[in-house]
Amino acid sequence: MLHPQPHPFVDEQPLIELRGATCGYGGHPAVEDVSLKIWPGEFVGILGPSGAGKTTVLRAILGGVKVYRGQVLIEGKPLGQRRMPIGYVPQLETVDWNFPITVEEVVLLGLASNKAWPWATRRERQRVYEMLERLGIAHLAQRHIRALSGGQQQRVFLARALVANPRLILLDEPTSGVDIKTRDDILHLLHQLNHQGATIMLTTHEINAVAAHLPRVVCINRTVIADGPPAQVFTPEILGRTYGARMVVIHHGGLVLVAERPHAGYEEHLVLQGEYDAGAV
């Protein structure tokens, strides 16, 4: 797995800044008092259990939720004045896979926002093919989106997010519902893009498989619990507060591994049976 070098962040302004933001839907806050700075060139994972408000944080940046208190700033300016294009990859489960649309048509949408001319220009088409080529799916351009594997489907929506050349790419659970090989491919690809200068933010609930491989992890459960490199934030205390479950953290040769700890009653039961050596971990 590639790891980007730490970026020098001195006297630059953050790309994204949340200042004590409380946001949600229909009068009900989903996250409260979130403060977060994302700097250009970073690769950040938002980690938390389902329902913790990970997607809400992404939506706050995209202007898709109500901000009740606090501020969301894009390049130092309020949301309404956003000029910067942001690439967004939704969760694959939210896509209507029966919709009559080809791979090429999906990727072209990434350039559609203010086009009055219905047909794509030659330059736009070329741009789409370059992007598909780069992601290794150019031969699938005329296929229907259902006729693809999970990894290919993820790449199609990544291509749509990248085609307008955004500085910031947001991905909602890009590794859920795909197999291990695809997951590693996707993470590798994202690291490459990050090395080429893109700022990347993704949400995940997978600690070992995803979050542990990112340079910076923000633990969220309705508010920010911790923020920093995995080695720093992966402590039983922080993960326990994030997931509301007891966790065991194992450091092994520079690797951090997190496991769920059997609940107290079960442990005692095992100890009584003499089958479990509680001192081993």
Binding site: G63, G64, P90, D96, V106, S113
Partner: peptide, 11 residues
């Protein structure tokens, strides 16, 4: 196709 994301892209 995708009303939520369309809004994010300025549609």
């Amino acid at each position: 196709f995708d009303p939520e994301v369309a809004a994010y892209y300025g549609v």
